[in-house]
Amino acid sequence: MILARRTGLYLVLVALVALFVSPFGWLVITAFKDSSEMAAYPVHWLPEKWQFGNFSRALTFFNYLGYARNSLIIASVYSVLITLSSAWAGFGFARLAARGKRLVFGVLLSTMMMPAMITLIPTYIIFAKLGMIDTYWPWVLWGLAGAPYLIFLFRQFFANMPRELEEAAIVDGCGYGRIFWRIFLPQSWPVLATSMLLSFTWVWGDYIAPSLLLSTDHTTLAVAVATQYVNESNQTPINNLMAAGSVLYILPVLLLFFILQRGFVTGVSTSGLK
């Protein structure tokens, strides 16, 4: 009875995994297809002739590595800055008493409900007035500003840390800056990993901000992969190369996830968010 129940459960789980993995699987299969096979009907579930060369063509069709470098720079800078600034703000909300703290925190959280699209054109105008169009400064500023979700994540984690830890540090002569840097931050690596992973992924996968703020020459890999695999003559998409480029594009994020996954799971569970 137990065996049957467990088998049934696993079958359901396998079916769900297959369902969720199928778009990615189809992307990978498409990356190995010849262009004529993509329109074949009945559908060729697997390529008749595996086109491994699609990957090298995808890498050389445009300056793939140059755009990857651009993505890596802004995603890394942004994720480091936003993790630190969010941790800093989260620590303040969790451990310090200040008048109006709850209200400010409430306002902060409420901004999470505002769709990013609403602020798109005003954001462009602000950065244009500041002369920051076609530079990476917007990502630096966004990084320094902190993200409400990450601040919330850190606040929840820091709020759960014992008060005695803070009091013992104060008795030993620590100020709040050292308490944050030397005691709280080193103990929060699961949340740090979660924050790094999430924020890196936000920027790595973002299409709208770079396409709005950067020129074709300076843009990110997300924009380049989506727009530059086109036939030169009539600008129509070359889907198999786009699929190959996309597979290569998601590898760094997958790699980062595998490295940080333990911290990610712990971070989400220990911060009270599930």
Partner: peptide, 23 residues
């Protein structure tokens, strides 16, 4: 200090601010 760090980072430049050109 929090405010100061933010301002210093903005003014001092943690990044060159020049976008990397692919050409």
């Amino acid at each position: 200090t929090s405010t100061g760090i933010a301002a210093a980072a903005t003014a001092g430049g943690l990044l060159s601010g020049c976008a990397g050109s692919v050409s």
